[in-house]
Write a protein that binds this DNA or RNA. Structure first.
Lengths: 339, 339
DNA sequence: TTGTAGGCGTTATCAT
DNA sequence: ATGATAACGCCTACAA
């Protein structure tokens, strides 16, 4: 019982004009008399004609679609990023094909190629995992290669290359500032927790280390811990830490809540005996008690910035688009610190 | 610096065969001699040829793409559903176009039509919001209309119609069972909290009311509260409740955590003085303290069921596909109840 | 202002 | 087993 698909010839016939004229009307050309336009529009409205996107795509080699790749969408940070991206893209008339690549290089490459073969107009990679860890430049070669076909935009990661555009947070400063605040309140044994070696994790660590140095506090390797991104795992890993500590800075809110659970289990007062700072300011930050002080990365701004530049590149063919835009973070103070 | 796009004619020329033969090789036809196949494949590999999807789409009228519509992706329930859906679809060689429609009828209709005009092979609507509230059958007419063009699959919602397929949870039973358990432990004043009038909210309420009735406990309208889906709002709304209560069943985990925050503010012991049960068993359920007893809806199963049937319908043209599949829920017991 | 015709890259139906 | 050719539906010079 499929609806009969009607095409431009049908409209042309019904309106007693040529298909060229119908095409002009549909595409808003000004070379059509008002009278014919009205006539054609009437027919189009009546039968509810929409141009066949495949045929359009074939000729123009674009379907007004951009590919969005995330490691996983099942994560509050990623999903809100995708939300803002697709909302903004849609406002410009673009659809998004979503693809979850996982965290492995192999998967990333495969998914990039799959989307390229779909002739998307641009590619957006969401998450600092796509920026590699800075050690092996080769790990991001596939991005530069993709950018030879289509402009690539990286959200929260920095990758250098022609036609590669990045939007990142000022993570170094954000962590530097909050670490300094903790130090100035007398905390000296501050734990830094992260679950990856990604671009943004590295920046956060840098801010942490820089703040310690600038306050003449020796770095203690035991306090920089690599953890698994699950709350209970973090709690248990902290319990095994041999040295005492009085504050925790985590690279995301889940990990921070893990630290909170550690405090709860140990019977430590938060924030008096242990201060905790999270990252991303997602809804988990207000689900716990006390509620979590967290660094908000203004993901909405990042996404809008990204899409605006994307449109400028692919539609207006603007050539002087910034390759790297930095969005500031904001410290949202709640109950797990004494700020 | 775009890469030169090479097409089937180029391959044909380089391999000294006709385009028809190239097409056969690409599509794995068995009417090609092993020798020519080798020859053509060699050329294809060498130059890295991939068929133009637009041209394929134009001829076959499909691009192996399904449209997924969610009210918002920025929600743990929706995002994990989308994760499982797209993962499974991709394993079958299908891509997904994602679309966030909001909760209003108007937006839903618009987004459905937009995806239809993209000639997706099927449509998946995620969330019971698409099932209407059961009062106005007209509210789901747009779904039946869409199903005239393409099969429609509803995740967690029940809509009747030709070529409309639904996968839902056994919400009535899940809530009935947990309510009964609470009653059997001596709780008599059980609050039921929901933020919508959706299909699944209605089923949950039904389970709640049925359990009370079966245990000869009078329904109290004051205890069935409609709340805003934000933790602090729930907390404050509960604080204004005039009648006492000793248990809360919430239609999602955020709302349940709101109840937890109410207890914390009032200084009530959980679960001794107030038991709390959430729904969806998302990561928020383990972020709070005590951790939340929650009803797990096995969203992974729902999604896999959905995609399996989708493939059966659109590829194998099977005709005896179940229009409604029910997946059981599972009660995950944690610290907010005395089960 | 309007119409004609060629091209976009496949797939599929014929012949051969 | 292979090749020639007609769709598929649209856009857009170029002609009128």
């Amino acid at each position: 019982m499929k609806k009969d698909v009607i095409n431009i010839y049908d409209i042309a016939e019904m309106a007693k004009v040529s298909i060229a004229t119908v095409s002009r009307v549909v595409n808003g050309s000004d070379k059509v008399s008002e009278k014919t336009r009205k006539k054609v529009m009437a027919v189009i409205e009546e039968v509810g004609y929409t141009p066949n996107v495949f045929a359009q795509g074939l000729g123009l080699n674009t379907m007004h679609t951009v590919g969005i790749i995330v490691p996983t969408i099942s994560d509050l940070y990623m999903s809100s990023a995708v939300y803002y991206l697709q909302e903004k893209l849609r406002s410009y008339g673009y659809d998004c094909i979503l693809s979850c690549s996982g965290f492995e290089l192999d998967g990333k490459q495969r998914h990039v190629n799959m989307l390229l073969s779909k002739h998307v107009d641009a590619l957006i990679l969401v998450g600092s995992t796509y920026a590699g860890n800075g050690e092996h430049v080769k790990d991001t070669d596939y991005i530069r290669e993709a950018a030879q076909s289509v402009p690539v935009f990286v959200v929260n990661g920095n990758v250098q290359g022609d036609d590669v555009y990045c939007t990142v947070n000022d993570d170094v400063k954000a962590v530097y500032d909050v670490t300094s605040k903790l130090i100035e309140q007398g905390r000296e044994r501050i734990v830094f927790l992260t679950d990856s070696q990604s671009y943004s994790a590295i920046k956060k660590r840098k801010g942490y280390e820089q703040a310690l140095e600038d306050h003449d506090i020796p770095l203690r390797p035991e306090l920089e811990m690599h953890v698994v991104n699950r709350m209970h795992a973090v709690r248990d890993q902290l319990a095994e830490c041999k040295v005492p500590f009085d504050a925790v800075i985590a690279s995301n809110d889940e990990i921070a809540v893990g630290a909170l659970k550690y405090a709860f289990k140990k019977g430590l007062m938060v924030p008096e005996e242990l201060a905790v700072v999270g990252y991303n300011n997602c809804s988990i930050a207000i689900a716990c008690e006390p509620e979590l002080t967290s660094i908000d990365n203004h993901i909405e701004d990042i996404c809008y910035q990204t899409v605006d530049r994307l449109i400028a590149v692919i539609e207006k063919k603007e050539t002087n688009i910034e390759h790297k835009v930095v969005i500031p973070c904001e410290l949202v103070v709640r109950g797990t610190t004494e700020f």
